[in-house]
């Protein structure tokens, strides 16, 4: 087996950090995705424009650059806002926050498209039926559309989560002690790049495999009671 030369505990700590940042970015990304989809499907032109700008910008720029721009830009931006409100200290945006924001932004941009597709996948007949029984727009949204969006969006969101899990490696460039950075530190100490990068690869694979099993379970759960055509 692979000899980790005492760095096992460090890799484990890094793995935990990777999971934490992935879950935090997932939460932020889901919110941004829902918001983005709502904006893109909005009746207001300005909102649609903002939604379109967000997805185009973030999806067209490398995630590595997004991470770096947020890391260097966020503190300055937050500080600017704080100044504006008359607060004159410094506001710290830690690598963790910067990483979560950057990865959440990236996830949200793609999730916007997934949610938009899912909203539109709800059959128009159901919407018409809801209106015919006198439901308001809001009630239709809450009772008919939203519950089904989850099921339609899940496969797409699952793929995005797998992408997100791997993108966490990029946060190593801003000094967050996640799996990739811990591996790099181990390499510089032991001079065994192959050993540690391979170990990291297998840990990422394991995380991917666990996520895939979880997603499969969620997908089965979310489509309970859905009638399938006989094969």
């Amino acid at each position: 087996m692979i000899d980790l030369q005492g760095f096992g505990a460090q890799l484990a700590a890094g793995t935990l950090m990777t999971v934490e940042i992935a879950l935090a970015a997932l939460a932020l990304g889901l919110l941004l995705g829902l918001g983005g989809a709502a904006a893109k499907l909005s009746r207001f032109r300005a909102l649609r424009l903002i939604g379109g700008l967000y997805t185009t910008l973030v999806r067209g720029v490398p995630e590595l650059l997004v991470v770096l721009i947020v890391f260097f830009g966020a503190s300055l931006a937050v500080q600017g806002v704080a100044r504006w409100f008359g607060y004159d200290g410094y506001v710290e945006v830690s690598p963790f926050v910067a990483g979560v924001i950057a990865l959440g932004l990236a996830f949200g941009a793609y999730a916007t498209e997934v949610f938009r597709g899912a909203f539109q996948a709800v059959p128009p007949g159901q919407i018409e039926a809801a209106m015919a029984v006198g439901m308001s727009r809001r009630l239709t949204f809450l009772r008919i559309r939203l519950p089904q969006v989850w099921r339609f969006a899940l496969p797409g969101l699952g793929n995005l989560f797998l992408v997100l899990l791997k993108d966490t490696a990029l946060v190593s460039v801003i000094g967050l002690d996640e799996l990739m950075r811990k591996s790099t530190i181990a390499v510089s100490y032991t001079k065994e790049p192959f050993t540690f990068y391979l170990a990291a690869a297998f840990i990422y694979l394991a995380m991917t495999a666990v996520s895939m099993i979880g997603l499969h379970y969620l997908e089965r759960r979310s489509s309970r009671g859905v009638r399938r055509a006989a094969p």
Binding site: K166, A169, S183, T208
Partner: peptide, 8 residues
Amino acid sequence: RGTPLLVQ
């Protein structure tokens, strides 16, 4: 597909 490009 299961490992980061950076690791590769």
